[in-house]
Design a protein around this nucleic acid. Sequence first.
DNA 1: CCAGAAGATGAATCGTTTA
DNA 2: ATAAACGATTCATCTTCTG
Lengths: 391, 391
Amino acid sequence: MSVVRKGAPHRAPRLSDETFAADAAREEVRDRILIGDCIEQLASLPAQSVDMVFADPPYNLQLQGELRRPDDSRVDAVDDAWDQFESFAAYDAFTRGWLEGVKRVMKPNATIWVIGSYHNIFRVGALMQDLGFWILNDVVWRKANPMPNFRGRRFTNAHETMIWAARDPGVKGYQFNYEMLKGGNEDVQVRSDWLFPICTGAERLKDEDGRKLHPTQKPEALLARVMLSASKPGDVVLDPFLGSGTSAAVAKRLRRHFIGIERDEGYAAAAAARIEAVEPLPEIALQAPPSAREAPRVAFSALVDSGLVTPGVELTDAKGNVRAVVRADGTIALVNNATLSVGSIHRMGALAQGAEACNGWTFWHVEQEGRRHPIDVLRARLRAEMGVRSE
Amino acid sequence: MSVVRKGAPHRAPRLSDETFAADAAREEVRDRILIGDCIEQLASLPAQSVDMVFADPPYNLQLQGELRRPDDSRVDAVDDAWDQFESFAAYDAFTRGWLEGVKRVMKPNATIWVIGSYHNIFRVGALMQDLGFWILNDVVWRKANPMPNFRGRRFTNAHETMIWAARDPGVKGYQFNYEMLKGGNEDVQVRSDWLFPICTGAERLKDEDGRKLHPTQKPEALLARVMLSASKPGDVVLDPFLGSGTSAAVAKRLRRHFIGIERDEGYAAAAAARIEAVEPLPEIALQAPPSAREAPRVAFSALVDSGLVTPGVELTDAKGNVRAVVRADGTIALVNNATLSVGSIHRMGALAQGAEACNGWTFWHVEQEGRRHPIDVLRARLRAEMGVRSE
DNA sequence: CCAGAAGATGAATCGTTTA
DNA sequence: ATAAACGATTCATCTTCTG
């Protein structure tokens, strides 16, 4: 892992890693930390070159003084210079600048995640809409162990908000691993509120004095959920505010490429060491389960051709009330109100139900060995026989 | 309850209610629905006259077409004219207008709650900051039963966001019933993420055809938590987008005054009838919060929030000799030797027995269907209802 | 009358491929 | 480009129906 210094953003050689096969032109800006101003460094990247963006920008916290716990110990709050802005206008100008820079380097189907708190997320979200990003979800990170409100004057600030957005309105082809997420969630689709502990313990980077190295280090589990949701192995994930390098470390572990931008050389060095120590997961641990959407299309006529369905066989609905006959050309014949209709399994299914549309694969059934199966079962069998796998 | 028509915003007499003692000048604009444009009606109200604001403005949804469920039924989405705006700029102008109008009528110590989704909440929040409101928290309403994502293209949109803000930076004296909230929450301070079901069933107002009267009616439990958090009995709560009247109904039940603005006469009429039917809770259920020492130790308030126990209901011991009344904040009120005491179910149980300690869950009983059950039965039922996935 | 099945529904920015 | 065809996709809760 190489750290690239200001003024030479794409000169340093990349880490060798045989598992990352890629074309030489793009390799140059992969798996690097670029040190310098975020907006300048973004300008050095080629347009439409990244698949996903994760951004954890300064929150513009406006703390009025120091905060003490009930036991009089001092809370080590974020009071770094990089988190201070003169005004909302200054913060907006900064935000607009990096968002524009990021948008340029996103591929058309790329998506962006931005995390923030109530101090900044409303401004960020409004600017994202103004710049033409298309919000897909706002996702709430519910902290399992948030810092309490010591003064008892507000609710425990127990969550942060992530905005997930496509580069442009109308984008349909963005990566979203719906089946995989659902499979890992008791077979129920994942909601917009996620529960994770904050980053503590061994995962939290410490400096030589044992103090936390970075004030806002995010938990790896959060970043892993983000990347497993909206990217795939081999993708390039850009983080314009790399900080302690959580996103890059997770990207490497999940076999994504990363590009990190960080202006603090100390943070960048710590992140580089952290990333270097990461061992990518075995590929088998990251393969996507076959999803119906990605499976190759099989025409009903292919089932007839293959002999899995014989012309003349009767199809019924699940209850056996509606009947149709398979024809040799892969269409089916339906007698409905004494009228004979011929067409695709989908069209005839819709006709039988009086519906606009119908998935014939799940509507029609065949009787085999005394039991009724949806014809989708036969399609699955044909796919298996063909040795076809998704990807 | 009177509905005031356009052009005569403060003429109609108020509902008589001896429990609301107030000065005559302010009374004129209390407990009314003002029909007409939100910004115009706000201008008719006196400056610095309301204690809390709850606003549920149009979300500016930008739906592209109709959506159907997997069973091909049609989703009855929000497509009303009042939710349509030409552009973000038009929405921003509208938002700025009503926020300015609201700010003028807020007392210096008043706070405002605004609810929205990712479609609008970022714009609203940024404008609130621009106008000088001081955000205290963003609170996430996690929906126990959200509508699923039917296409599998995004995360289930399972929450909405509320922004809670003071009128100005530096305000210290805003109402926040910290002890009461903590006492009703296992003696742990309440977090910024709240779990409530959406509004369905008998609570949902229906039109003469049995269809939902208003597309976006909010659950009363959510409004009750808001008002119990940030107002006190006798306060004036303003809702500039009254809709079906949830905020006003809850205000009346919790013995707050309300002012509602609604431009649709049909909604206003339905809200007026709804409010008229509300019976305010016994004062004993709403009195000043108990001190920290008296705070309940368990989440009895969760039973109250869930509706399994209704404020005002009587609790007794197993034999029916000792009696106490459930309060809206999850404490109970006990009359013992002509002395009124308020506190947790455990403390009041101990007091009633003259004991050091008491398990209120087994001591106190409720009568349901002619039989007395320990409230522990209700707790078990609530736990079962919350299920395994409630995190 | 009760139990279980079946239907209804909620603030939603909710396709892809081939002709 | 536009239209047609293909075919993928839902969770919790409440109400109504059926046996």
